[in-house]
Amino acid sequence: MSTQNIAAPRSPYLSHRKRNRFNIEKWGWIYMRVSGFLLVFLIFGHLFYNLIFPGKVSILDWAFVAGKFSDPLWMWWDGAMLWLALIHGANGMRTLVNDYAHGRFRSVLLWALGITTVVLLVLGTLVLTTFDPCLGPTDNAELIAICAAQ
Protein backbone atom coordinates (compact mmCIF):
# COMPACT_ATOMS: atom_id res chain seq x y z
CA MET A 1 0.00 0.00 0.00
CA SER A 2 1.48 3.30 -1.01
CA THR A 3 1.14 6.49 0.94
CA GLN A 4 -0.97 7.98 -1.83
CA ASN A 5 -3.98 5.97 -0.63
CA ILE A 6 -3.94 7.47 2.85
CA ALA A 7 -6.09 10.55 3.22
CA ALA A 8 -4.53 13.66 4.67
CA PRO A 9 -5.03 14.01 8.43
CA ARG A 10 -8.14 15.95 9.46
CA SER A 11 -9.66 15.69 6.00
CA PRO A 12 -13.46 15.41 6.27
CA TYR A 13 -14.92 11.93 6.40
CA LEU A 14 -16.01 10.61 3.00
CA SER A 15 -14.33 13.59 1.32
CA HIS A 16 -13.08 11.26 -1.39
CA ARG A 17 -16.64 10.94 -2.60
CA LYS A 18 -17.72 13.08 -5.49
CA ARG A 19 -19.82 16.02 -4.52
CA ASN A 20 -23.48 16.06 -5.60
CA ARG A 21 -23.44 12.30 -5.78
CA PHE A 22 -26.85 10.72 -5.14
CA ASN A 23 -26.93 9.98 -1.42
CA ILE A 24 -29.44 7.21 -0.75
CA GLU A 25 -29.32 7.69 3.03
CA LYS A 26 -30.22 11.37 2.66
CA TRP A 27 -33.16 10.57 0.40
CA GLY A 28 -34.22 7.76 2.73
CA TRP A 29 -34.23 10.27 5.59
CA ILE A 30 -36.34 12.71 3.54
CA TYR A 31 -38.66 9.90 2.39
CA MET A 32 -39.38 8.79 5.98
CA ARG A 33 -40.48 12.30 6.94
CA VAL A 34 -42.52 13.10 3.81
CA SER A 35 -44.26 9.70 3.65
CA GLY A 36 -44.78 9.68 7.43
CA PHE A 37 -46.53 13.05 7.30
CA LEU A 38 -48.80 11.94 4.44
CA LEU A 39 -49.52 8.56 6.08
CA VAL A 40 -50.86 10.24 9.23
CA PHE A 41 -53.76 11.59 7.16
CA LEU A 42 -54.15 8.58 4.86
CA ILE A 43 -54.19 5.98 7.66
CA PHE A 44 -56.41 7.88 10.09
CA GLY A 45 -58.83 8.55 7.21
CA HIS A 46 -58.71 4.84 6.33
CA LEU A 47 -59.35 3.79 9.95
CA PHE A 48 -62.14 6.31 10.41
CA TYR A 49 -63.94 5.33 7.21
CA ASN A 50 -63.65 1.57 7.81
CA LEU A 51 -64.01 1.25 11.60
CA ILE A 52 -65.79 4.33 13.01
CA PHE A 53 -67.91 5.78 10.20
CA PRO A 54 -69.99 2.64 9.43
CA GLY A 55 -70.85 2.27 13.12
CA LYS A 56 -70.80 -1.51 13.09
CA VAL A 57 -68.10 -4.07 12.58
CA SER A 58 -70.11 -6.31 10.23
CA ILE A 59 -69.87 -3.67 7.47
CA LEU A 60 -66.38 -4.96 6.65
CA ASP A 61 -66.90 -7.59 3.99
CA TRP A 62 -66.23 -8.18 0.31
CA ALA A 63 -69.11 -5.96 -0.87
CA PHE A 64 -67.94 -3.05 1.29
CA VAL A 65 -64.41 -3.17 -0.11
CA ALA A 66 -65.65 -3.83 -3.64
CA GLY A 67 -67.90 -0.79 -3.32
CA LYS A 68 -64.93 1.29 -2.18
CA PHE A 69 -62.76 0.10 -5.06
CA SER A 70 -65.42 1.08 -7.60
CA ASP A 71 -64.60 4.67 -6.58
CA PRO A 72 -61.33 5.94 -8.08
CA LEU A 73 -60.73 8.11 -5.00
CA TRP A 74 -60.43 5.06 -2.71
CA MET A 75 -58.36 3.17 -5.30
CA TRP A 76 -55.81 6.00 -5.35
CA TRP A 77 -56.09 6.36 -1.56
CA ASP A 78 -55.30 2.67 -0.98
CA GLY A 79 -52.64 2.64 -3.69
CA ALA A 80 -50.92 5.62 -2.06
CA MET A 81 -51.11 3.92 1.34
CA LEU A 82 -49.69 0.69 -0.13
CA TRP A 83 -46.63 2.35 -1.68
CA LEU A 84 -45.97 4.95 1.01
CA ALA A 85 -46.52 2.66 4.01
CA LEU A 86 -44.78 -0.46 2.71
CA ILE A 87 -41.63 1.40 1.62
CA HIS A 88 -41.71 3.45 4.85
CA GLY A 89 -41.97 0.25 6.88
CA ALA A 90 -39.34 -1.61 4.86
CA ASN A 91 -36.89 1.28 5.21
CA GLY A 92 -37.55 1.37 8.94
CA MET A 93 -36.94 -2.38 9.20
CA ARG A 94 -33.73 -1.90 7.18
CA THR A 95 -32.57 0.54 9.87
CA LEU A 96 -33.28 -2.02 12.59
CA VAL A 97 -31.58 -4.85 10.69
CA ASN A 98 -28.49 -2.68 10.17
CA ASP A 99 -28.49 -1.85 13.90
CA TYR A 100 -29.01 -5.32 15.36
CA ALA A 101 -27.97 -7.94 12.77
CA HIS A 102 -24.43 -8.58 11.63
CA GLY A 103 -22.53 -10.53 9.00
CA ARG A 104 -24.30 -13.16 6.95
CA PHE A 105 -27.46 -12.92 9.06
CA ARG A 106 -27.75 -9.25 8.12
CA SER A 107 -27.51 -9.87 4.38
CA VAL A 108 -30.05 -12.72 4.59
CA LEU A 109 -32.51 -10.44 6.42
CA LEU A 110 -31.93 -7.54 4.01
CA TRP A 111 -32.54 -9.77 1.00
CA ALA A 112 -35.68 -11.25 2.58
CA LEU A 113 -36.91 -7.75 3.36
CA GLY A 114 -36.23 -6.49 -0.16
CA ILE A 115 -37.88 -9.47 -1.87
CA THR A 116 -40.94 -9.32 0.44
CA THR A 117 -41.36 -5.61 -0.23
CA VAL A 118 -41.14 -5.91 -4.02
CA VAL A 119 -43.48 -8.95 -4.14
CA LEU A 120 -46.12 -7.24 -1.96
CA LEU A 121 -45.88 -3.96 -3.89
CA VAL A 122 -46.42 -5.81 -7.19
CA LEU A 123 -49.21 -7.98 -5.72
CA GLY A 124 -51.02 -5.05 -4.13
CA THR A 125 -50.74 -2.88 -7.23
CA LEU A 126 -52.02 -5.71 -9.47
CA VAL A 127 -54.98 -6.32 -7.14
CA LEU A 128 -55.85 -2.62 -7.14
CA THR A 129 -55.53 -2.14 -10.90
CA THR A 130 -57.12 -5.40 -12.11
CA PHE A 131 -59.95 -5.64 -9.56
CA ASP A 132 -63.40 -6.01 -11.11
CA PRO A 133 -66.24 -5.36 -8.65
CA CYS A 134 -68.61 -7.43 -10.81
CA LEU A 135 -66.52 -10.52 -10.14
CA GLY A 136 -69.04 -12.26 -7.87
CA PRO A 137 -72.49 -12.08 -6.29
CA THR A 138 -73.22 -9.25 -3.89
CA ASP A 139 -76.02 -7.88 -1.70
CA ASN A 140 -74.90 -4.31 -2.27
CA ALA A 141 -77.75 -2.69 -4.22
CA GLU A 142 -75.55 0.08 -5.60
CA LEU A 143 -73.04 -2.47 -6.86
CA ILE A 144 -75.76 -4.65 -8.44
CA ALA A 145 -77.03 -1.59 -10.31
CA ILE A 146 -73.54 -0.70 -11.54
CA CYS A 147 -72.79 -4.27 -12.66
CA ALA A 148 -76.20 -4.65 -14.35
CA ALA A 149 -75.48 -1.53 -16.39
CA GLN A 150 -72.28 -3.03 -17.79
Binding site: D61, G89, G124, G136
Partner: peptide
Protein backbone atom coordinates in the same frame (compact mmCIF):
# COMPACT_ATOMS: atom_id res chain seq x y z
CA UNK B 1 -47.14 -2.20 12.42
CA UNK B 2 -44.79 -3.48 9.69
CA UNK B 3 -45.69 -7.13 10.32
CA UNK B 4 -49.38 -6.23 10.51
CA UNK B 5 -49.03 -4.43 7.17
CA UNK B 6 -47.60 -7.55 5.49
CA UNK B 7 -50.61 -9.60 6.64
CA UNK B 8 -53.04 -6.79 5.80
CA UNK B 9 -51.83 -6.53 2.18
CA UNK B 10 -52.18 -10.32 1.79
CA UNK B 11 -55.68 -10.49 3.30
CA UNK B 12 -56.88 -7.54 1.22
CA UNK B 13 -55.43 -9.21 -1.90
CA UNK B 14 -58.02 -12.00 -1.36
CA UNK B 15 -60.61 -9.52 -2.68
CA UNK B 16 -59.27 -10.37 -6.13
CA UNK B 17 -59.72 -14.14 -5.64
CA UNK B 18 -63.35 -14.47 -4.57
CA UNK B 19 -65.93 -12.90 -2.25
CA UNK B 20 -66.07 -16.18 -0.30
Amino acid sequence: IFFFLLVHILDTALIRISPE
